[in-house]
Design a protein around this nucleic acid. Structure first.
Lengths: 335, 335
DNA sequence: TTGTAAGCGTTATCAG
DNA sequence: CTGATAACGCTTACAA
């Protein structure tokens, strides 16, 4: 049933080495035999045994995926799942597959790096990672090709949204025509880079443009997700509201919207809301959410492309951080 | 740097074979040497090379995951992503890891079965699959351990929700106290087993209880998702509405809700809605959605447990289809 | 251009 | 109870 390179060699009156050469497009083989082998391989549906190949060549055509669970962001997270999906599609098309890196496998604990050595993965992709995770920093030190679409670690290439640009677009939109509305922000947890960047961009913009910042109009959500958005909004409601509210993420924004509705606050009449992410649901909500769209597909494919480049041309230098442009989607929560 | 079983043997004045034995808990080793080896291994952080181990033993401690993309259900799907997440957690804890099965890897097309042989996966998990997918049926024929939490294929063990029970609970709730409301259904695409079962259960219940079924109150959504729900609702609106509406899934139900709202139909006053799934968002929507909750965690862990059993005790027979109970979550879209 | 043979790091079967 | 030794299926010098 299962055929090896030896069987093929015998059946074709060739030597195993030759077969290997044509499969790997290495060494010299006459065009004729190459064709013959290729045809035969296709006919009988031979596929080389990965394990043997790995054992010998130290390559696996596999990319390890870090999807940090510590943050309690499940695979269900609308943003990260989507990115992972696009990434997967791209690399599979290039002949690579994905395997989740896990640090606690049954009994034996193993660092990301050990896992990579052990599995001989060609590269690793950090979809979402925790900055406090030592394993990640260890990875950055060893030189294994590695890209991230989340955290920024010196030594690891990252592809992330231009958060600052998103905030600028939002505020430019708010202040257009010389309007001088009061604007507040419900920021996400500040241990997350993306949330931190968005918050800082907000503060900087306001300072540069000399718009006042009212501390009571700034609230930090405790976590990701709907519920923490709801709670943050409750806190905001303790004081008079600003006219416009930027929210760190759509997930959170939806919770905010709900809290506001529950208090009979009319949107966008009483307060305008601008989110961040453009998750699938943003446009379906009532009222539909004005938000900054992250180009998930572009982030993912850029990351994939870059990782493959790192793997196949380790010499060619590349920029370490790439910022992907974002776009403001104006919908019903602003006027 | 990288240590092999040989290095360890040498450093410990033993033979490689002995080391292997203690690692695999096989053959006879004196307690003393076992301890000594185990201690040393832990100290130096040795991990066996998977490739070599696979090559020799035909085991990989890896489970192949089928996540059909043909259906355009991405990794982002709230139900399946959540199930996969729970499954992953369970098997990782038992020392297995997950690798996505892919049939078109770069240039060479390969059937699921070939992939499994090639990668020597110990089992396969079908999170979501297309019934028209020949590769899946081929898998069922070969005897590789395999479980599904979606499609039902003869020969493949399946763990799915008790859809009939969900419909019965919903309708019992609707008809409680001898009420005789008219009830309709927006069913999902009928090529999907789960949707089909829900539809059939509905029809059977109504017939058994001798409640009339108005064909105009039954609409089939063309696809999964919000948009097809919206469209289905539009169709339903062409005729007078029933008093109660069961919807095949929450995803679809949210689209329905939106369409109804857009037409100024009051929920639950004019029409009551009951969904299916209890996706995360169901309780956050306004009004919050009454729905049948699928126990995603239990489905996933049951599937995981069963697959591991199939792998490790292929002899022990097990039922082929397990139905997991569901629970009606009563919220604001019903009164 | 093709064939030979020595590994890669394990496991498993025998002897000792 | 422990130690040799032959696979496992492939890649890669090197020889023919």
């Amino acid at each position: 049933m299962k055929r090896t390179i030896y069987d093929i060699a015998r059946e074709l009156n060739l030597s195993p080495g030759t077969i290997s050469k044509v499969i790997n497009k290495t060494g010299n083989v006459s065009d004729e035999t190459r064709e013959r082998v290729l045809a035969y391989i296709k006919k009988v549906g031979y596929v080389p045994a990965t394990s043997a190949r790995m054992l010998k060549s130290k390559k696996s055509y596999t990319i390890g995926v870090v999807f940090s669970e510590d943050l309690n962001i499940g695979l269900e997270h609308p943003f990260f799942a989507s990115i992972l999906q696009h990434f997967k599609k791209y690399v599979e098309n290039e002949g690579y597959e994905l395997s989740f890196i896990v640090s606690k496998l049954g009994n034996n604990q193993m660092s990301y790096y050990e896992w990579c050595m052990n599995k001989k993965v060609d590269g690793v992709y950090i979809v979402v990672g925790d900055n406090g995770d030592q394993g990640l920093h260890e990875l950055a030190l060893k030189n294994i090709p590695c890209v991230s679409t989340d955290i920024l670690i010196p030594g690891i290439h990252a592809i992330v949204s231009d958060n600052r640009m998103g905030i600028i677009q939002s505020l430019d939109y708010v202040y257009q025509n010389g309007s001088s509305k009061t604007v507040g922000m419900i920021a996400g947890p500040q241990h997350s880079r993306a949330f931190l960047e968005r918050y800082q961009a907000f503060i900087e913009y306001q300072n540069e443009q000399e718009h006042p910042i009212n501390p009571k109009h700034i609230v930090f959500a405790e976590s990701f997700g709907f519920t923490s958005g709801y709670q943050a909004a409750m806190k905001l409601l303790e004081n008079p509201l600003p006219k416009v509210l930027l929210v760190g993420s759509d997930d959170i924004a939806l919770g905010v919207l709900k809290a506001l509705k529950d208090h009979n606050i009319s949107i966008p009449k009483d307060i305008e809301i601008i989110g961040f992410d453009d998750i699938h649901f943003a446009k379906h909500f009532t009222p539909s959410l004005t938000t900054v769209k992250q180009d998930r597909e572009r982030i993912a494919t850029t990351a994939a492309k870059k990782l493959l480049q790192l793997i196949n041309h380790p010499d060619r230098p590349v920029e370490e951080v790439i910022r992907i442009p974002v776009e403001l989607m104006v919908r019903e929560t602003t006027k």
